[in-house]
Design a protein around this nucleic acid. Sequence first.
DNA 1: GTATCTGCAAAACATTTGCAATTCT
DNA 2: AGAATTGCAAATGTTTTGCAGATAC
Lengths: 130, 130
Amino acid sequence: MVENGISPSYQRLKIYSCLMGTKSHPTAYTIFEKLKEEIPSLSKTTVYNVLKLLVDKGLVKAVRIEDHELRFDAEVREHGHFKCSVCGEVSDVFLNQELMQLIEQRNKVTEIQFNITGVCEKCLQISKEK
Amino acid sequence: MVENGISPSYQRLKIYSCLMGTKSHPTAYTIFEKLKEEIPSLSKTTVYNVLKLLVDKGLVKAVRIEDHELRFDAEVREHGHFKCSVCGEVSDVFLNQELMQLIEQRNKVTEIQFNITGVCEKCLQISKEK
DNA sequence: GTATCTGCAAAACATTTGCAATTCT
DNA sequence: AGAATTGCAAATGTTTTGCAGATAC
């Protein structure tokens, strides 16, 4: 944490540990609820602030698995998510083998949504010209 | 529209046409703003209601490209999105060639998020046992 | 004339912001 | 003391809900 330029306050350590200790991709609110028991003074604002800080510093990934709310993941390696429509469990899927396998085993997959961010051809050309 | 079990009211036709005529993945609010000029009586609630209906009936896809708001797409074939971080333009990416090309040309890609929905191994087993 | 569709206002919900109080060094 | 951190309350922005009025068949 220190090596990433974050002073390790009590709240920050707790929130980060909370994320490290789970694979359930919790929301800010879930983290708040969980830590509230241990830190009764904790505020939702702090959870939001700290999560934003952790994301900015690259210690945590913000992921939008579905629905209206943002989830957080201490797994920062590039990966995606597989959600079982029956049990609701969310597991990590890594590029490329796993993704390709899943796409090929279409009988088990009902939906794929993916979003890629980068620089498009046009903008790449413009930047080269400069 | 009729063949999908939707009675084609004026508002419904307008909202659907609006989506058919663009590749810009508009939000409910954008559609509302655009149609408001033509249909001054139009309400945001109707736009939300109709979009939900169109999604339920499979005429439209709801996509979450980023941020806090839902976008809509009349392209219902399975595909993902590529957003240029420079110009902000969003284009469609189809499986598999395009996706694979993009993933391989890593110099241009800064982030990949993907979400897959389906039935996990465990649940698949359970359903077979029955 | 009854069922469906529309639209307003209010509610709900996640997230952000302004600012004051607290904590750390 | 001074800077950083926390936390409350209020604001924001998107989407949903309840219900009354309008429309269509």
